[in-house]
């Protein structure tokens, strides 16, 4: 009988790297979001925003590395990279919306 599933074979010594890199993707992602948040809240100076981009670059690299390690298809690889680009803008869109909502809220308060 023909095999139905043909998945890439991963050598046993590759798994630790895969799990470590996938953790890095998320930890660096939180680092990026946390630095942007703390800067926006005033706990850190605005100078930290460029540092957050280093976290994002490392995160994007980790995801790239992960997709190579798991032998992902070209389609999955492209999609993951597009997701990373979207993630670059996500915190900024968030805080733009928060600032706009704050403005509208304080204007509504003043009118009352």
């Amino acid at each position: 009988m023909e095999p139905i599933i043909s998945m890439p074979v991963i050598a046993p010594n590759e798994f630790l790297g895969i799990f470590a890199v996938s953790t890095m993707v998320l930890v660096l992602g939180v680092g990026y979001a946390a630095l942007v948040t703390l800067s926006k809240m005033g706990y850190l100076s605005r100078k930290w925003i460029p540092v957050s981009y280093i976290f994002w670059i490392l995160q994007a690299y980790s995801l790239y590395d992960l997709s190579v390690r798991i032998h992902s298809s070209p389609f999955t690889f492209k999609v993951l990279m597009i997701a990373m680009l979207a993630y670059l803008f996500a915190p900024h869109v968030y805080f733009y919306l928060v600032e706009q909502a704050e403005k509208r809220y304080s204007q509504a308060e003043e009118h009352r």
């Binding site: 992602g29 979001a33 948040t37 999955t76 999609v79 993951l80 997701a83 996500a90 968030y94």
Partner: peptide, 23 residues
């Protein structure tokens, strides 16, 4: 492919919720 893509995106709202509470 569908599962891989959308599963990979699933942690994003969790990061957002985390940030939200602390913010």
């Amino acid at each position: 492919e569908i599962g891989a893509l959308f599963s990979a995106l699933e942690p994003v709202p969790l990061v957002a919720m985390f940030v939200h509470v602390l913010y």
